[in-house]
């Protein structure tokens, strides 16, 4: 399947989801769906670096919050339409990703991971001390109830949902395109054996920097509409460790080697969490995510996709 066909199919699926949601007409569906789609984008973004290159990023929350706080900053300065804010969030997070990568990727992989973990704490410190974007008290973002589109009135949450759906489609198409491009093969060589890749003439540092930048940019994009969704951002919620653990757990549970893994993982885990948050409690559902992450990395290192592939292989042989 070539990229154009694939993009068409993904876009069609996206449209179908949108049409279904509109037909359903329940606001809660938009709220829950937005969160799940946000995780689709975050998990796919994480996987571009983590799954394809094998570099673990613990700083998802930092990139996400950078996107969110860029939006808050611009909003305070002069309100702009959200699509513009998404682009700004992508640029800011992408640049930070590039800088982080440049400083730490020349060393062993673990340093990058530790640095991203520490980075989240530092950006949180900066935001807490930055009164303009609300400091530790947080910032309120008041959005209109409806958005006008060519004479149509659209509910604001439906508008946000549509944007996030679009982002998810873009993220998935990008991930798959990378997988099948020369760049994707470069990523895979780094994951398998960086030294050998370097020896074969793969410009490893440049390739890794492309990965960190892209990955960071997508996380920033996912974060930019967040203040409008939640209405009130505060450092503790924007920098929550939940984002980091979810964006790692979802690809790990789904399978990290292709775009399908993060998608399956985020839809499964995202829906399960929505369900658990409503029926049990949000602390318990985080515990479940942690336990599932540990269980999957030990028992099924290739995720659900890996399990299915093994089954298929065994079935074909018999």
């Amino acid at each position: 399947m070539n990229t154009t066909t694939f993009s068409t199919i993904v876009a069609a699926v996206g449209l179908a989801v949108l049409a279904y949601a509109h037909w359903l007409g329940v606001d809660y569906f938009y709220f829950a769906g937005y969160t799940i789609l946000q995780f689709v984008v975050l998990a796919t973004a994480w996987n571009i670096l983590g799954g394809y290159c094998g570099y673990v990023n613990f700083g998802t929350a930092a990139f996400f919050a950078l996107g969110a706080y860029s939006a808050v900053f611009v909003h305070k300065f002069h309100p702009l339409p959200i699509p513009v804010l998404i682009v700004i969030g992508a640029v800011v997070s992408g640049i930070v990703g590039l800088g982080m990568g440049y400083l730490t990727l020349r060393l062993r992989g673990a340093f990058f991971s530790i640095a991203t973990l520490a980075m989240a704490v530092v950006f949180q410190t900066l935001v807490v001390n930055w009164e303009y974007v609300g400091g530790s008290r947080g910032a309120y973002i008041i959005h209109p109830e409806n958005v006008e589109f060519a004479g149509y009135k659209v509910h604001y949450i439906e508008y946000l949902f549509t944007l996030m759906l679009l982002l998810a489609v873009i993220a998935i198409v990008t991930a798959r395109t990378i997988e099948r491009s020369q760049l994707g093969f470069g990523f895979a060589t780094i994951r398998d054996d960086e030294l050998a890749a370097e020896a074969c003439g793969v410009p490893t540092l440049r390739v890794k920097l492309i990965a960190t930048t892209l990955s960071g940019a997508f996380m920033g994009m996912a974060g930019a509409p967040f203040p409008y969704y939640i209405g009130y951002v505060q450092p503790q919620s924007a920098f929550a460790l939940d984002y980091a653990v979810n964006s790692i757990a979802m690809p790990m549970i789904g399978g990290t080697t292709s775009w399908v893994g993060p998608l399956v993982g985020s839809i499964l885990l995202g829906s399960a969490q929505q369900y658990a948050t409503v029926t049990i409690s949000s602390a318990v559902n985080l515990l479940i995510v942690g336990l599932m992450l540990v269980a999957f990395v030990i028992i099924a290192p290739n995720g659900l996709i890996g399990l299915v592939q093994e089954r298929m292989r065994a079935w074909r042989k018999s």
């Binding site: 673990v56 790692i248 757990a249 790990m252 602390a283 942690g290 992450l293 540990v294 990395v297």
Partner: peptide, 19 residues
Amino acid sequence: QESLRGLAFFFGLLFITEV
């Protein structure tokens, strides 16, 4: 596989202990 999954493993432990 200690690099990628080992890190995720310890991250999971961190999270489980905290929660």
